[in-house]
Design a protein around this nucleic acid. Structure first.
Ligand SMILES: [Mn+2]
Ligand SMILES: [Mn+2]
Ligand SMILES: [Zn+2]
Ligand SMILES: [Zn+2]
Lengths: 128, 128
DNA sequence: AAACATAACAGTAACTATTACTATTTTCTT
DNA sequence: AAGAAAATAGTAATAGTTACTGTTATGTTT
């Protein structure tokens, strides 16, 4: 019933800044390695726990890679293109959110989130 | 260089039929359990190996659930709605593929696949 | 039809991303 | 300052998936 109190933690804020300061959509291990440069003895479990909390509180986004989870500090509306050659994730603007409204009405579903992911080969991989 | 010869296997065809004969978008373990009703001593490794082969040869689709991979015997163009309450996956028709053509031209990316996934609460979960 | 090459198999071990556990530390309230 | 519990570091456990190994099934060539 009571809202869970979330205390400040140096670790959580550092993890948030790490995720927010990059465009690569890092996975948990990558966040862990980067955060260790600032907090050398941080635990991997702490990274996972805080990433999950940050997702739950809506401060970062959770993305699904082929076998892993990735995180995104950009919480604005955008879609993704993933290059299957180099594995990079690109932010793209593609979908007009309004199409989901009519969909929800038609099917009587309540839509809470949507995720569009394109995959293929990016320009730089096509060139080289 | 030589194309890899794919031999017939009773196991592979049975697995394919199992995936094609359901609408639930089963995960590997579910396919395993169902296939064991037909081939009681089939190995889980065999199920995984063949599911991957079937995906590679385009006979089934691979979907990403929260933590697992799911498979889809319906290889026609369609999108998905996932209910976060009951976990069910629903097939939906939503995206007009033509919007990707102009996107690819604009960004100079080659698009090989795209996946749109909506999540929320389905009608039967809203009702109950 | 028999011999051959190797794809596929069953069974099991190994791997890897993630979560759970535990004793200790940090944060916040009284 | 003292107390309650959220958060932590370190480690063990879990779970989905892949790798390995000796054997079997399949398709091809004699
Ligand atoms: Mn993004
Ligand atoms: Mn489907
Ligand atoms: Zn690329
Ligand atoms: Zn539901």
């Amino acid at each position: 019933m009571e809202p869970i109190k979330q205390r400040y933690s140096h670790q959580r804020e550092t993890i948030l800044q790490v995720v927010q300061s990059t465009l690569v959509h890092p996975n948990a291990d990558s966040v862990y390695k980067e955060t260790r440069k600032i907090i050398p003895n941080i635990s991997l479990g702490t990274v996972y726990r805080n990433l999950n909390q940050l997702v739950e509180s809506g401060r970062i986004l959770k993305l699904k890679d082929e076998a892993m989870v990735r995180y995104d500090g950009n919480t604005g509306q955008h879609d993704h293109f993933r290059c299957s050659k180099c594995g990079k994730w690109y932010d793209v603007e593609l979908i007009d959110q309004s199409i989901f409204k009519s969909f929800a009405e038609k099917h009587d579903f309540r839509i809470e989130s949507f995720n569009l992911e394109l995959a293929g080969t990016c320009k730089s991989c096509l060139d080289s």
